[in-house]
Protein backbone atom coordinates (compact mmCIF):
# COMPACT_ATOMS: atom_id res chain seq x y z
CA UNK A 1 0.00 0.00 0.00
CA UNK A 2 1.55 3.25 -1.08
CA UNK A 3 1.69 5.90 1.59
CA UNK A 4 -0.99 8.53 1.20
CA UNK A 5 -0.21 12.15 0.75
CA UNK A 6 -2.22 14.11 3.25
CA UNK A 7 -3.30 17.67 2.72
CA UNK A 8 -3.64 19.72 5.85
CA UNK A 9 -5.70 22.87 5.89
CA UNK A 10 -4.80 24.69 9.04
CA UNK A 11 -6.31 27.79 10.54
CA UNK A 12 -3.65 30.46 10.97
CA UNK A 13 -3.85 33.64 12.95
CA UNK A 14 -1.42 35.26 15.34
CA UNK A 15 -3.21 37.89 17.43
CA UNK A 16 0.17 39.24 18.56
CA UNK A 17 1.10 40.15 15.03
CA UNK A 18 -0.66 43.25 13.69
CA UNK A 19 -0.05 42.06 10.15
CA UNK A 20 -1.62 38.67 10.64
CA UNK A 21 -5.14 38.00 9.40
CA UNK A 22 -7.15 34.82 9.88
CA UNK A 23 -6.71 32.47 6.97
CA UNK A 24 -6.28 28.85 6.08
CA UNK A 25 -2.88 27.53 5.12
CA UNK A 26 -2.27 24.32 3.27
CA UNK A 27 0.50 21.84 4.04
CA UNK A 28 1.28 18.49 2.52
CA UNK A 29 2.70 15.52 4.37
CA UNK A 30 3.28 11.88 3.56
CA UNK A 31 1.45 9.59 5.90
CA UNK A 32 3.42 7.22 8.14
CA UNK A 33 2.29 4.03 9.82
CA UNK A 34 0.59 4.76 13.16
CA UNK A 35 0.73 8.48 12.54
CA UNK A 36 -1.20 10.61 14.97
CA UNK A 37 -1.84 14.32 14.62
CA UNK A 38 0.75 14.79 17.37
CA UNK A 39 3.44 13.55 15.07
CA UNK A 40 2.00 15.10 11.96
CA UNK A 41 1.76 18.58 13.46
CA UNK A 42 5.22 18.41 14.95
CA UNK A 43 6.62 17.36 11.60
CA UNK A 44 4.87 20.22 9.89
CA UNK A 45 6.24 22.65 12.43
CA UNK A 46 9.74 21.29 12.34
CA UNK A 47 10.02 20.81 8.61
CA UNK A 48 7.69 23.32 7.00
CA UNK A 49 6.63 26.24 9.15
CA UNK A 50 8.27 26.86 12.49
CA UNK A 51 5.80 29.54 13.47
CA UNK A 52 2.87 27.14 13.76
CA UNK A 53 1.33 27.23 17.24
CA UNK A 54 -0.41 24.29 18.87
CA UNK A 55 -0.38 22.60 22.27
CA UNK A 56 0.61 19.12 23.28
CA UNK A 57 1.94 17.83 26.52
CA UNK A 58 1.31 14.22 27.45
CA UNK A 59 0.60 13.07 23.87
CA UNK A 60 -1.25 10.14 25.46
CA UNK A 61 -4.75 11.57 25.92
CA UNK A 62 -4.51 12.20 29.64
CA UNK A 63 -3.61 15.87 30.03
CA UNK A 64 -6.24 17.59 27.90
CA UNK A 65 -3.90 20.07 26.22
CA UNK A 66 -4.49 19.24 22.61
CA UNK A 67 -8.19 19.74 21.95
CA UNK A 68 -8.85 21.11 18.46
CA UNK A 69 -11.41 20.91 15.69
CA UNK A 70 -10.41 18.05 13.44
CA UNK A 71 -12.50 17.93 10.30
CA UNK A 72 -15.31 19.68 12.08
CA UNK A 73 -15.18 17.74 15.34
CA UNK A 74 -13.61 18.90 18.58
CA UNK A 75 -11.30 16.13 19.73
CA UNK A 76 -7.86 15.37 21.15
CA UNK A 77 -5.33 15.70 18.39
CA UNK A 78 -2.87 13.38 20.11
CA UNK A 79 -5.20 10.43 19.94
CA UNK A 80 -6.40 11.11 16.42
CA UNK A 81 -4.87 8.76 13.91
CA UNK A 82 -4.44 10.15 10.44
CA UNK A 83 -5.61 6.79 9.15
CA UNK A 84 -9.06 7.67 10.49
CA UNK A 85 -9.19 10.80 8.35
CA UNK A 86 -9.83 11.46 4.72
CA UNK A 87 -6.92 12.66 2.58
CA UNK A 88 -7.81 16.21 3.42
CA UNK A 89 -7.50 17.20 7.05
CA UNK A 90 -8.98 20.46 8.27
CA UNK A 91 -7.71 21.75 11.59
CA UNK A 92 -9.24 24.64 13.49
CA UNK A 93 -8.76 25.80 17.05
CA UNK A 94 -11.55 25.08 19.52
CA UNK A 95 -14.26 27.70 19.37
CA UNK A 96 -15.69 29.12 22.63
CA UNK A 97 -12.23 29.72 24.04
CA UNK A 98 -9.95 32.66 23.62
CA UNK A 99 -7.52 32.18 20.79
CA UNK A 100 -3.85 32.33 21.64
CA UNK A 101 -2.64 31.70 18.14
CA UNK A 102 -3.27 29.25 15.30
CA UNK A 103 -4.51 26.04 16.93
CA UNK A 104 -3.75 27.08 20.47
CA UNK A 105 -6.53 28.33 22.74
CA UNK A 106 -6.67 29.42 26.34
CA UNK A 107 -8.52 26.65 28.10
CA UNK A 108 -6.55 27.16 31.31
CA UNK A 109 -8.08 30.51 32.16
CA UNK A 110 -11.57 29.29 31.36
CA UNK A 111 -11.28 26.22 33.54
CA UNK A 112 -9.74 28.12 36.41
CA UNK A 113 -12.60 30.63 36.43
CA UNK A 114 -15.05 27.77 36.19
CA UNK A 115 -13.39 26.09 39.18
CA UNK A 116 -13.65 29.32 41.14
CA UNK A 117 -17.25 29.77 40.20
CA UNK A 118 -18.44 26.31 41.17
CA UNK A 119 -15.93 26.22 44.02
CA UNK A 120 -14.51 23.00 42.74
CA UNK A 121 -12.98 21.69 45.91
CA UNK A 122 -14.22 19.64 48.80
CA UNK A 123 -15.76 21.96 51.37
CA UNK A 124 -14.43 20.22 54.39
CA UNK A 125 -16.54 19.29 57.36
CA UNK A 126 -13.63 19.27 59.76
CA UNK A 127 -9.93 20.03 59.44
CA UNK A 128 -7.68 17.16 58.47
CA UNK A 129 -6.51 15.03 61.36
CA UNK A 130 -3.15 13.47 60.47
CA UNK A 131 -3.45 10.92 63.25
CA UNK A 132 -6.79 9.49 62.25
CA UNK A 133 -7.70 6.61 59.99
CA UNK A 134 -9.20 7.59 56.66
CA UNK A 135 -12.98 7.97 56.53
CA UNK A 136 -14.56 4.90 55.07
CA UNK A 137 -16.33 5.05 51.76
CA UNK A 138 -18.22 2.51 49.77
CA UNK A 139 -16.29 1.49 46.70
CA UNK A 140 -19.30 1.85 44.43
CA UNK A 141 -19.56 5.47 45.47
CA UNK A 142 -15.82 5.97 45.04
CA UNK A 143 -16.06 4.60 41.51
CA UNK A 144 -19.03 6.83 40.73
CA UNK A 145 -17.11 9.89 41.87
CA UNK A 146 -14.10 8.76 39.93
CA UNK A 147 -16.22 8.43 36.82
CA UNK A 148 -16.95 12.16 36.93
CA UNK A 149 -13.50 13.02 38.20
CA UNK A 150 -11.99 11.54 35.04
CA UNK A 151 -12.68 14.72 33.07
CA UNK A 152 -9.35 15.99 31.76
CA UNK A 153 -10.61 19.52 31.07
CA UNK A 154 -9.79 19.36 27.41
CA UNK A 155 -12.67 21.67 26.58
CA UNK A 156 -13.96 19.63 23.66
CA UNK A 157 -17.42 19.48 25.16
CA UNK A 158 -17.47 23.22 25.74
CA UNK A 159 -16.42 23.85 22.17
CA UNK A 160 -19.07 21.53 20.80
CA UNK A 161 -21.94 22.98 22.78
CA UNK A 162 -23.92 25.63 20.94
CA UNK A 163 -25.07 27.24 24.16
CA UNK A 164 -21.60 27.45 25.66
CA UNK A 165 -20.48 29.03 22.41
CA UNK A 166 -22.90 31.91 22.54
CA UNK A 167 -23.47 32.30 26.26
CA UNK A 168 -20.27 32.80 28.23
CA UNK A 169 -22.09 32.74 31.56
CA UNK A 170 -23.21 29.15 31.04
CA UNK A 171 -21.17 26.78 33.23
CA UNK A 172 -21.07 24.48 30.24
CA UNK A 173 -20.80 20.69 30.12
CA UNK A 174 -17.48 20.39 31.93
CA UNK A 175 -18.71 22.76 34.61
CA UNK A 176 -21.89 20.80 35.20
CA UNK A 177 -19.85 17.64 35.42
CA UNK A 178 -17.62 19.24 38.02
CA UNK A 179 -20.63 20.32 40.05
CA UNK A 180 -22.08 16.83 39.98
CA UNK A 181 -18.77 15.37 41.08
CA UNK A 182 -18.79 17.42 44.26
CA UNK A 183 -22.52 17.02 44.84
CA UNK A 184 -22.05 13.28 44.87
CA UNK A 185 -19.15 13.41 47.29
CA UNK A 186 -20.27 12.86 50.88
CA UNK A 187 -17.06 14.52 52.07
CA UNK A 188 -18.31 17.81 50.69
CA UNK A 189 -20.31 19.76 53.25
CA UNK A 190 -22.43 21.69 50.78
CA UNK A 191 -26.07 20.62 50.71
CA UNK A 192 -28.52 20.88 47.84
CA UNK A 193 -29.79 24.14 49.14
CA UNK A 194 -26.40 25.77 48.86
CA UNK A 195 -25.93 24.41 45.38
CA UNK A 196 -29.27 25.70 44.23
CA UNK A 197 -28.29 29.01 42.63
CA UNK A 198 -25.39 27.46 40.80
CA UNK A 199 -27.28 24.50 39.47
CA UNK A 200 -30.85 25.50 38.99
CA UNK A 201 -30.66 28.30 36.49
CA UNK A 202 -30.18 29.10 32.86
CA UNK A 203 -26.48 29.51 33.63
CA UNK A 204 -26.54 26.12 35.27
CA UNK A 205 -28.11 22.92 34.11
CA UNK A 206 -31.21 24.61 32.66
CA UNK A 207 -29.02 26.44 30.22
CA UNK A 208 -28.53 23.06 28.61
CA UNK A 209 -31.04 22.50 25.85
CA UNK A 210 -30.11 18.91 25.26
CA UNK A 211 -27.97 19.29 22.17
CA UNK A 212 -25.95 16.24 23.27
CA UNK A 213 -22.91 17.23 21.27
CA UNK A 214 -20.87 17.31 24.46
CA UNK A 215 -21.45 13.65 25.21
CA UNK A 216 -20.76 12.66 21.63
CA UNK A 217 -17.42 14.42 21.40
CA UNK A 218 -16.04 13.85 24.91
CA UNK A 219 -12.81 11.96 24.28
CA UNK A 220 -13.02 10.40 27.71
CA UNK A 221 -16.57 9.27 27.03
CA UNK A 222 -17.87 10.68 30.26
CA UNK A 223 -21.55 9.90 30.90
CA UNK A 224 -22.40 13.58 30.66
CA UNK A 225 -26.07 13.21 29.84
CA UNK A 226 -26.63 11.10 32.91
CA UNK A 227 -24.79 13.72 34.90
CA UNK A 228 -27.17 16.46 33.76
CA UNK A 229 -30.20 14.33 34.45
CA UNK A 230 -28.86 13.76 37.92
CA UNK A 231 -28.42 17.51 38.41
CA UNK A 232 -31.90 18.28 37.12
CA UNK A 233 -33.45 15.82 39.46
CA UNK A 234 -31.44 17.12 42.39
CA UNK A 235 -32.43 20.71 41.53
CA UNK A 236 -36.06 19.75 41.33
CA UNK A 237 -35.86 17.80 44.56
CA UNK A 238 -34.23 20.62 46.46
CA UNK A 239 -36.80 23.11 45.17
CA UNK A 240 -39.61 20.98 46.54
CA UNK A 241 -37.83 20.28 49.76
CA UNK A 242 -37.16 23.94 50.32
CA UNK A 243 -40.80 24.75 49.75
CA UNK A 244 -41.94 22.14 52.22
CA UNK A 245 -39.59 23.48 54.82
CA UNK A 246 -41.31 26.80 54.32
Amino acid sequence: MAARELTFEIFRFNPQDPESTPHLQTFKLTEEPYMTLFRALNRIREEQDTSLQFDFSCRSAVCGSCGMMVNGRPTLACKTLTSDLEDKVRLHPLPAFKLIGDLSVDTGTWFRSMAERVEAWVHERAPFDPGALEDRMDDDLAQAIYESDRCIECGCCVASCGVANVKPAFVAPAGMNRIARFMMDPRDARNDDEWFEVVSSDDGVFGCIGLMACADVCPKELPLLEVYAYLRRRALGSAFLARKKG
Binding site: V122, L133, D139, Q143, D188
Partner: peptide
Amino acid sequence: VRELAHFGVPWTRLR
Protein backbone atom coordinates in the same frame (compact mmCIF):
# COMPACT_ATOMS: atom_id res chain seq x y z
CA VAL B 1 -2.58 9.54 51.17
CA ARG B 2 -5.18 10.16 53.85
CA GLU B 3 -4.87 13.89 53.38
CA LEU B 4 -5.52 13.42 49.68
CA ALA B 5 -8.63 11.47 50.62
CA HIS B 6 -9.59 14.46 52.71
CA PHE B 7 -9.08 16.68 49.65
CA GLY B 8 -11.41 14.46 47.70
CA VAL B 9 -9.35 11.86 45.84
CA PRO B 10 -11.73 8.99 45.09
CA TRP B 11 -9.36 6.25 46.16
CA THR B 12 -10.50 2.81 45.22
CA ARG B 13 -11.89 1.26 48.40
CA LEU B 14 -11.80 -2.17 49.85
CA ARG B 15 -14.77 -4.38 49.09
